[in-house]
């Protein structure tokens, strides 16, 4: 045996050894090496489970493994302060209750809740212009956003979410907040309209607060989130279509100083119903458990 042959044998032996070691080390999480947290098999399984329960999956989703952390937020007050400054300049009547303050000016009524929710009601409607009704949806939306910006009611880092036609004939434009380019579904802006006039605007906006020590963890896969949702909801009496699954942040509203919000998988149905699955625990996000005083 010459040196070349010996090297070849050693190469084959070490390649085999490395394969064995790699298998032992990575096999349970092999998907992570290939950058996939959701396999084709996972999708098949979840689609089947959804179908058995009368849900149709028509959404695509990110299949890569993802890590996330809690974010700490506090209610945003700048928009309200600017609005109040405007109102006070023009003259306003003020009335206070335990959880809300009411401001009434000539053309609008404003309610600020202690939780941070701001409601603006336009007494004779906010005019968008005569040609507004003839505009395409997107142009109409731009017109609305211009109106809000002029009125100081268009926050930064806003993302359009969906249109909603109400039973009473009104139309609602729904936006959600983004922080560092990640959706924060708790932060919402809703514009309620009637043909060419804005009737009311509701804003619940948050701002990032001082971050607690990092607790970055891997999030569950979207297929696991879907499985958990179906287990929680049970079979549907009529067919329901899942249109979108995306990762963001969500929690209920708190009348608090600041709080942490967990990452969630938001699962959107075609009827605009949204469910939020905690991406760390896999639990369906419901109302916060406020301890009972016995």
């Amino acid at each position: 045996m010459n040196l070349g042959q010996a090297k070849l044998i050693l190469i084959i032996a070490f390649a085999g050894l490395n394969f064995f070691l790699g298998y032992q080390l990575f096999w349970p999480d092999f998907g992570r090496l290939t950058g996939v947290a959701v396999t084709a098999e996972d999708i098949q399984v979840v689609e089947q489970k959804l179908a058995e329960n009368n849900y149709i999956l028509q959404a695509s989703f990110d299949r890569s493994p993802r890590n996330s952390d809690f974010i700490t937020v506090a209610p945003e007050w700048q928009i309200k302060q600017d609005l109040l400054y405007q109102l006070i300049k023009t003259g306003v009547q003020i009335e206070e209750t335990e959880h809300s303050t009411y401001y009434r000016s000539e053309d609008r009524r404003v309610v600020i809740h202690t939780s941070g929710l701001l409601q603006v009601f336009y007494i004779s409607g906010g005019e968008l212009g005569e040609d507004a009704t003839e505009l395409e949806k997107n142009d109409f939306r731009i017109k609305v956003e211009e109106f809000l910006e002029e009125d100081g009611l268009l926050p930064d880092e806003i993302s359009f979410d969906y249109w909603e036609e109400k039973e009473d004939g009104t139309l609602a434009l729904n936006y959600h907040q983004k922080i560092n380019d990640v959706p924060v579904f708790s932060g919402q802006l809703k514009v309620i309209m009637d043909a060419d006039r804005i009737l009311a605007v509701e804003i619940y906006w948050l701002e990032p607060a001082e971050q607690t020590p990092p607790r970055e963890m891997e999030v569950i896969s979207p297929t696991e989130a879907l499985q958990n949702l179906v287990s929680e909801l049970g079979p549907s009496s009529e067919e329901q279509v899942i249109k979108k699954i995306e990762l963001g942040y969500y929690s209920g509203e708190y009348d608090a100083e600041k709080w942490e919000i967990p990452p969630v998988w938001r699962i959107a149905f075609d009827n605009h119903q949204h469910y939020y699955i905690n991406a760390f625990t896999g639990n369906l996000e419901k109302d916060t458990v406020i301890p009972e005083q016995l």
Binding site: F70, T212, A256, E257, I261, N283, T288, V289, P291
Partner: peptide, 18 residues
């Protein structure tokens, strides 16, 4: 997650218990 209340209390919840 931690919720810091206005009265100085701290609420911890994992969505199921608080």
């Amino acid at each position: 997650r931690v919720i810091e209340e206005r009265d100085g209390g701290r609420l911890y919840t994992d969505g199921e218990k608080g």
